[in-house]
Simulated assay, not measured.
Amino acid sequence: MQIDLHCHTTASDGALTPAEMVMRAGVMQIDVLAITDHDSISGFQAAKIAREEQKLKRLELIPGVEFSTTWEGFEIHILAWQFSLEHPALVRLLAEQRERRHLRSEAIHAKLIKQGIAAEKLPAARPESSAKNQDGNQDGNVVTRLHYAQALFEHGYCNSVQDAFEKYLGKGQCAYEKPQWCSMSEAVAVINAAGGVASIAHPLAYDLSNKWLRRLIAEFKDSGGRAMEVVSGQQSPEQRRWLTELAVEYELLASVGSDFHYPGRYRELGRNLKMPDELTPVWHDWPEMQGL
Rank of each mutant, 00 (worst) to 15 (best):
Q29F: 03
N159K: 09
A46H: 10
A107Y: 01
E60Y: 15
E106C: 12
G170D: 10
Q45K: 04
R241A: 12
D13M: 14
V22C: 11
I117G: 15
W71V: 01
I113Y: 03
S105H: 00
E288W: 12
L279K: 13
A254V: 09
K211L: 09
E177V: 12
F220D: 00
E278V: 15
R98M: 08
S199H: 10
G264E: 14
R215E: 02
P18M: 11
K114V: 04
L93K: 00
N137R: 04
N141D: 11
H109G: 07
A187M: 06
L279Q: 12
D31Q: 09
D207K: 05
L16T: 02
Y262H: 14
G172M: 01
A227Y: 04
E20R: 09
G233Q: 07
P287R: 08
T10F: 00
N133P: 02
H102S: 08
G136M: 10
G225K: 03
F165T: 13
W242A: 11
S223P: 01
G14L: 12
A15E: 06
V256M: 15
L61Y: 04
H284C: 07
L152C: 07
R271W: 15
R51P: 14
Q234I: 08
A19D: 01
I76M: 03
G26Y: 08
N192F: 01
